[in-house]
Amino acid sequence: MMRPAPWIALLAALLTWPAHAGLFDDAEARKEIMRIRDDHTARLDALESSSRATLQLANQIEAMKAEVARLRGDVELLMHDMESVKKRQQDFYVDLDARLRTLESGAAGPAAQIDPAAESRDYENALNLLKSGKYAEAATAFDTFVTTYAGSSFLPSAHFWAGSAALQAKDIARATQHFNTVVNQWPQDARAPDALLGVANCQRAMGERRLEQNTLKAVISQYPDSAAAKSAKQRLGS
């Protein structure tokens, strides 16, 4: 009789067991089971190492997704930069084109309407009024200056002097307005610390001692190295 394959033997044993329990002897069955167990262990080991590999793969995919996201971010930034450059270039072109057209047509640009000589002459005149103690007139002259020469480089100074003149002329509201204009529009200007000090002077003139003190503190904190801060410190100390 042909010997059946171990698997079939075992299956047969199981199917017929317990009726045919004694078909194979114990030793053979045990051997078979040990073999199956070894096989099973080997398969499990293989599975474990393969699932470990799968985990590593999953980790790698995660890392690559992060890398793709970073690259996507780079692309978004580059596209954005390119759009901005394109737009700026177009703006330049339009501006240049407009200027060339003006030149070609021979028309005078609006800039030509402002006479730089008149600008500095008016400024000097207003300043002289202030120096000679004609405060009300000086204030008016500076007022006119700032409206006439809205693009002037003297503007921060003009506002500052207008404020000083108005303060001397006891027009506190107007003075406050001018000083604040300097502080708000040109906070980095050399006149700004003094203008803020001017605001404090206006507040003192109005009897607003608490506000004055706060403004003096602001002078010190915002322009710590300025001469205005020095005098603010003295006034707070007194």
Partner: peptide, 11 residues
């Protein structure tokens, strides 16, 4: 389960 069954049936 197989191993246990086999175990029952023998040593």
């Amino acid at each position: 389960a197989l191993a246990l069954l086999a175990g029952c049936s023998s040593t």
